[in-house]
Design a protein around this nucleic acid. Structure first.
Lengths: 223, 223
DNA sequence: AATATAAGTGAGTAATCACTCATTATAGAG
DNA sequence: CTCTATAATGAGTGATTACTCACTTATATT
């Protein structure tokens, strides 16, 4: 894919393109690369300017502070990270037609998030590395998660529990196990062992099976 | 527990105590706290000195550079993180007497690592936050993991696969799923949602059951 | 072509950085 | 007590930091 295309896609919201000058794109690219490698605090604005091929003053013309530049990267990444759950009709679609089972839903979600991480990896690195250090980012994430992701996830899990597909353990536990299993795969695949000889299709299907065997209603499960 | 005791326990290796002056303990405590909160790069040595109640020069008398101070925290934490796997007789013990099943082994491991994280949380935060930014730490971790943890984990998993308790999916996948499930619980419990109303005993048992249902040999599993 | 607006520049600034070192305080040995 | 060694200090160092601003260049509008 075009080097600039993925950045523009990352930054767009509600389908509306953001206008970016050439230099602005260069700045964002350089910043993402360097923040991902060395971290926000260890990267100086002069280094970013150098790698972007612009004067240091240019950065501050577009972003009032260095932290504004970080947020310009991190905020869109946060929204894209939970994108499937932001759609209004999402839950309804899961219930009504799209997915016959929790397994189908999980499989689709895993594949979808796999493609997402593959595409935007550097920006995602920055997001997850910096969330530990910046209260604003953490609060924004918690707000989005509780109001959008958690609410909808809960409805979906309860739906499939009532249908008898999932065990009757607490919804929160099901959500936690689902998310940590999916995130655990993606983290191992792209961050911890990116050079391992992965058979992605097979490993994703194994992950789905692992999750479903772990969560399906069956004898022997107790809450 | 004594505020200084846990630090001394963290730093000791092979059961040998390390000699630490009062000021040195204060420095390490301050550094761990601040690195955990703001990150290594965003914490200045003058701030550490201030919080520790020592002169800035005192830090450099004990640690040649700021990075040496970081490594003095991170290296012992790394070793303690994988401590169960460093014992020579570990695999033999698992096979012979201690644990009759993979489930028993996993339950013991989870409880053990739960106590570990609870005890040394701030130092663990520093370790995991900084491993992304420092090649030395990452390399050290990979070396320890492949030579000690992975090798032994593999033997254990193969053992219980041969006994017919675990599915015949690739060993690496079993290890990955086991570790991400355990780490996923601990991460959620202590880092992501520490203020959630946890029933630790129940959630740990649920996690063990989830893992075992996900990994047990049964009809329907395919590799 | 004239004008207005925005984009880009880079030398300059005060603050802060990790680290040094000459000096002083402390403590145990004889 | 004196002597010696180590621990601790904090003012001082040059380098680097995020950010500013007077100025130049490019683009758009009339």
């Amino acid at each position: 894919m075009n080097e600039q295309q993925w950045l523009k896609e990352l930054l767009q919201r509600n389908g509306e393109d953001v206008k970016l000058s050439e230099k602005q794109i260069k700045i964002l690219q350089a910043a993402i690369e360097m923040f991902a490698e060395k971290g926000y605090a260890a990267t100086s604005t002069s280094e970013i300017a150098k790698r972007a091929g612009v004067a240091e003053g240019t950065i501050f013309r577009h972003y009032k502070t260095k932290k504004d530049l970080l947020l310009a990267i991190v905020t869109p990444t946060l929204f894209k990270s939970v994108a499937p759950f932001l759609a209004k009709e999402f839950v309804k679609e899961v219930f009504e037609s799209q997915y016959q089972s929790y397994e189908d839903f999980i499989r689709a979600l895993l594949r979808n998030r796999y493609q997402f991480v593959k595409k935007y990896l550097p920006a995602i690195r920055v997001f997850w590395q910096e969330i530990a250090f910046h209260a604003e980012i953490k609060e924004q994430f918690q707000r989005i998660f509780t109001t959008h992701v958690y609410q909808k996830f809960k409805q979906i899990v309860e739906h499939f529990q009532e249908k008898g597909e999932l065990t009757a353990i607490p919804v929160d536990s099901v959500i936690r196990m689902t998310i940590t299993t999916i995130a655990g795969f993606l983290l191992t695949r792209f961050i911890v062992l990116p050079d391992y000889d992965w058979d992605d299709e097979a490993e994703m299907e194994r992950t789905v099976q692992f999750l479903m065997h772990g969560l399906s209603k069956k004898d022997g499960w107790f809450a």
